[in-house]
């Protein structure tokens, strides 16, 4: 059962969180932003477009690296956080809040259930740091 307000994480470090209107927000984890360093540019997903699970929906750039953002589950982008165009640093400052990437519609809540919860993800992130 998906709880609104809770965060669900993918192995490629994106999160999904359901709001009260049954829409989902998508973003990248605090761990991902700290590995990336200062975000200088983001290429946002296309509004209205449907993406399959694991499809590339955008890119985040720091000065010397590029990271791809993947769809954690099948989803349709409803709107994007266009504030990120001018203030990409929001991703560093508040990755789970003002630094969200887009709002999406997800037809199967059960897809989201397959993702990691906060605790599981924390353990996962720690292990990938030591790799």
């Amino acid at each position: 059962m998906i709880k609104s307000g809770s965060f669900y994480f993918s192995k490629s470090h994106e999160w999904l969180s359901k709001d009260s209107n049954n829409k989902y927000r998508i973003g990248i984890s605090d761990f991902a932003q700290s590995e990336l360093g200062d975000v200088v540019y983001i290429s946002l997903p296309e509004t209205g477009k449907t993406y399959k699970k694991d499809a590339k929906i955008g890119e985040i750039e720091s000065v010397k690296s590029v990271s791809e953002i993947y769809a954690p589950v099948d989803l349709k982008i409803l709107s994007v956080n266009s504030k990120l165009n001018d203030t990409p640093e929001l991703i560093n400052q508040d990755p789970k809040g003002a630094g969200f990437i887009a709002e999406a519609e997800i037809s199967n809540d059960s897809d989201v259930e397959g993702l990691m919860d906060e605790n599981k993800y924390k353990a996962f992130a720690e292990s990938s740091h030591h790799e």
Binding site: V63, K64, V66
Partner: peptide, 9 residues
């Protein structure tokens, strides 16, 4: 904008 270049991408 070095992320365009071969040593990164």
């Amino acid at each position: 904008l070095s992320t365009r270049e071969q040593h990164i991408r």
